[in-house]
Design a protein around this nucleic acid. Structure first.
Lengths: 356, 356
DNA sequence: ACGCCAATTTAAAACGTTGTAAATTTGTGG
DNA sequence: CCACAAATTTACAACGTTTTAAATTGGCGT
């Protein structure tokens, strides 16, 4: 290629040398400590690893010197030798972009991993709807010691793949596989039940709820909770079929506006997310309905936003940072070999104020 | 320690072996390819690296075999040998938790790094306000080849540290150091100028703006843009001193509500964030003012949320995903040795719709 | 057939760590 | 003082890659 290109091409002057991080000259290694203490490298390694056959005396001395010169084991060498990566990978879903979902969980995760050697690497999902390719890549090439992801389906292909390969992971959300696995989930049944109940207690005649996409596991939970409360009270209800929680806010707003202009509209809304709650408020106020008197909303909030902006919305809190932290802890236990049966957490809806 | 503890402690049975990822037996390495082709390991390495002294013939053959068996170089070995980590680290600020700020940027970053060997690791900030400790840690221990972070101050200590060490980085936001560095920034001067201008054009008598915290660089830019428009038009204005963009939404809402009940309240609001806009809307509507007739808001939005929920708010868009992608590209160029003078981008405010 | 240069391939060492197996020191009883 | 075991330390190899320097091959003029 470029066969006919003119030959007189001027060589671009190397106007600046590549910006390599400095060769990190004199970065302390086991060898450094070995020379300083007069011990063998192996001994130093052992001492730092608190191996049993090292005398208390040298163990202490080695630790002292290590601390003094600021020794930190080389992750690459450790990983090469042991095969353990000291990496936890979190799969980022495009839907998590909204309202700090992903970021909250990551802060929680980071907190759980803070005092451990684990680093957190984020693997985004570009391709298809589910990020099963990314999971496959990570398993095949040993890119991490454990995996974290959310928005599970009842027979989530990512979970299947991980189970088949015995790869440690924790999901945010449950599945319906017969093989158990570690998860943290919010009790969306309880949320929906409680939300409907509160609307009923407030004296609402007809309640509705905006449900998550049907393919996600918690669609079932939420629907079930809502329906249970509705049936117990024997109250009127409706569930929009053309909308879900992932719908753009304007679609939700327009739907609410249109519906509330038709006969027999609902006057009680269960909104399992801040966006849907805000969209509902706007749609209703466009039709002249006022929140708190003519209709009510009970919403799930994952930040303080909603209740701070509009206190008339009654909110139930889901603490995503706590969820992230729990997921991190479970994953560490899982990697450590604890039986998965014990590694499941169902977060209770929080009815009071969150503790940041 | 535990000197007096009872001896009869029952040894906890090893109820399950540690869940190690399988030894990844038979994972292809250079050696595998060498044996398959009958070449030496060195030759294979060269061929894959497209070294000049390898004959076209073997180069092709090696690439074929590598692709066939799905060879992927071992990151740990490469890192150990070359000192390059193939890692980009992004500093996560607690303030970015709101409204997908961090997540958008990360998606953009991830897209920029997609076809490269770089992985994205997130380093959260736990300790003090600025994450200079994390920066120091990363530099000292060579944990990454490059760094990304946001919310710069005029003389940001993180930037100073990185400049002193010649460590590659790209900021979101400018500084006032005399030494130049790579950055991507939004033209907040233009935003504030344009926002104020639009409010004036709409016939508003008195405009106001909620500014970022004073210590951040873009406080200056925004204030300057706002003031320029105000002075050009010779219009009344005020700037709240007890509030900033990081203030909790309820504080902003209460301030707006209180101020609008006092004499001579502003009727034009420039809100450089979705949260402040929503809080303003609520505060005003609490006092019975209606948006679009009695007062106006021009807001910066970084998601589609605001305009979808409340079209009466006029919005100016900041594309954070694009910013992230640009930062990734600049960082790659910086690591590749390009002069920093060329690595600066000022994003124009987008007045139309964003292209997702 | 020889020497020599260029083109191409190769062996060996190194990065920093850990596992295996062997070596050294220490302590004890005879 | 010796044998012997226990306690403690050590040398060496290996993980998979890149780099340095050396070896092999082929071509070509003499």
């Amino acid at each position: 290629m470029q066969r006919n290109a003119p030959v007189s091409r001027i060589e671009k002057p190397a106007d600046s040398e590549p910006a390599r991080s400095p060769p990190r000259a004199g970065k302390p290694t086991l060898k450094t400590i070995a020379e300083l203490t007069g011990l063998a490298i192996t001994t130093v390694s052992r001492a730092l690893g608190n191996a049993p056959q090292i005398s208390e005396n040298t163990r202490r001395r080695v630790h002292e010197v290590a601390a003094e010169i600021g020794y930190l084991p080389d992750r690459a060498a450790q990983r090469l030798k042991t095969g353990r990566t000291n990496v936890i990978s979190v799969l980022l879903d495009p839907h998590e972009e909204i309202l700090g979902f992903g970021t909250s969980i990551m802060h929680g995760l980071a907190r759980a991993l803070q005092a451990t050697p684990y680093h957190l690497i984020v693997t985004p999902n570009f391709l298809d709807g589910s990020n099963v390719d990314a999971v496959n890549y990570i398993i095949r090439n040993g890119m991490a010691d454990g995996l974290i992801f959310s928005r599970t389906e009842p027979f989530d292909p990512r979970v299947r793949l991980l189970l088949e390969n015995g790869f440690p992971f924790v999901t945010h959300g449950r599945t319906e596989f017969s093989t158990p696995h570690a998860f943290v989930d919010y009790d969306n049944y309880a949320f929906a039940y409680e939300a409907a109940k509160r609307l009923i207690v407030k004296g609402r005649r007809k309640v509705t709820i905006i449900l998550p996409p049907k393919r996600l596991t918690f669609y079932q939970h939420m629907r079930h909770g809502f329906m249970t409360a509705v049936r117990e009270a024997g109250i009127a209800y409706e569930i929009p079929e053309t909308l879900d929680l992932d719908s753009p806010a304007d679609l939700i707003r327009d739907y609410v506006r249109r519906r509330s202009a038709e006969p027999d509209p609902p006057d009680g809304f269960a909104c399992p997310g801040e966006v849907s709650a805000l969209a509902t408020i706007t749609g209703m106020s466009d039709q002249g309905f006022t929140l708190g008197t003519e209709y009510d909303i009970v919403a799930k909030q994952t930040s303080l936003l909603l209740s701070q902006i509009q206190p008339k919305v009654e909110t139930i809190y889901e603490d995503l940072k706590a969820a992230g932290e729990a997921m991190g802890q479970l994953l560490l236990q899982r990697i450590g070999g604890e039986p998965v049966e014990d590694l499941t957490i169902l977060q209770d809806p929080q009815f009071g104020f969150p503790t940041p």
